[in-house]
């Protein structure tokens, strides 16, 4: 026993090193499987408030551009309001409102921190549980998809960006509805890849890729990007399609959090039918 003790004492430098690395490994593994890490949740409130002070300052530099984007979006929304339409047929009055049941609601949120240069990128938003935000909600911007909510605290939420190695988003080609999966392979924040499109489908450069709506998370028809380049590897039955994101993730400042009101119903039905 004494020998063991003196051995430990003599090599304490190595064992302390080992001990600290084990702590680090435990932290990394917890974090990698996206289990809600206790530490991150506890510190989200603190780091969020420090970062929001910083972003309060930096936001001013982008005010002009942000205003422009907001006003563009306003003009589109104005075009969609009732006042912009002329009633040509009285029968439109007969349509019962209950036919259209609302499925998605939107919460506007500001970005506190954002990254694009890592292999796995995250954003932090200034809305949390207090604003009705929950885990696994979609985050979109006026020009495209942004990510999925990972953790929420009272006033802040952190988002897995689409620029992440685990981001797999069900997408489709707008013109012919073929379904594929969008993934990001790193390095360039402007390009992603669309997988699983069979080679008999006719493609052209510039075809629009949108979300498929198959995932409970993203509504159907949110813009992802356009086809930039496509190749068929020898012996493969699927295209390798390179696509250019419609959103510039380096200049995001405002996003919308999407709440699918029928998500629980959909998931419940799905698990029921799988159980049988």
């Amino acid at each position: 026993m004494r020998n063991l003790f003196s051995f430990l004492l003599k090599n304490y430098f190595f064992f302390l090193f080992l001990f600290l690395e084990i702590i680090a490994t435990v932290l990394i593994v917890n974090n990698n499987y996206f289990q809600r890490s206790v530490v991150i949740n506890a510190t989200n409130e603190f780091t969020g408030s420090v970062k929001s002070i910083f972003s309060n300052v930096t936001e001013y530099f982008f005010l002009k551009q942000t205003n422009k984007i907001l006003s563009e979006e306003n003009s589109i929304l104005h075009a969609l309001t009732e006042k912009s339409y002329i009633i040509t047929d009285r029968s439109t009055y007969l349509i019962d409102d209950t036919v259209y049941k609302q499925q998605y609601t939107y919460v506007g949120a500001g970005i506190i921190s954002n990254s694009i240069h890592k292999r796995n990128n995250y954003l932090m938003l200034n809305k949390g549980v207090a604003d009705g935000v929950n885990k696994d909600m979609a985050v979109i911007s006026p020009k495209g998809i942004v990510g999925i909510i990972r953790d929420v605290s009272k006033n802040f939420s952190s988002v897995i960006s689409v620029l992440h190695k685990d981001a797999k988003i069900s997408a489709k080609i707008k013109k012919n509805n073929y379904i594929g999966t969008m993934i990001w392979k790193g390095i360039d924040y402007r390009t992603a890849y669309l997988m699983d499109i069979p080679t008999h489908v006719k493609l052209t450069m510039g075809d629009t890729i949108i979300t498929s709506g198959f995932s409970h998370i993203f509504p159907e028809g949110i813009m992802i990007g356009v086809i930039n380049n496509y190749t068929i590897l020898q012996g493969e039955n699927f295209y390798t399609i390179k696509l250019k994101f419609s959103e510039d993730y380096n200049s995001l400042s405002y996003v919308y959090i999407v709440n699918n009101l029928m998500k629980n119903e959909q998931i419940k039905l799905e698990t029921e039918s799988q159980d049988e």
Binding site: F13, F14, F17, L20, E21, I23, A24, T25, V26, L27, I28, V29, N30, N31, S37, V39, I40, T43, F46, T47, V50, K51, S115, K118, N120, Y122, M124, S158
Partner: peptide, 19 residues
């Protein structure tokens, strides 16, 4: 790590470097 949301990664690298 706390500020980068990458819990553990910088710790592991820093401790290795110091060792």
């Amino acid at each position: 790590d706390m500020f980068e949301n990458t819990m553990g990664i910088n710790i592991a690298a820093c401790v290795l470097m110091a060792y």
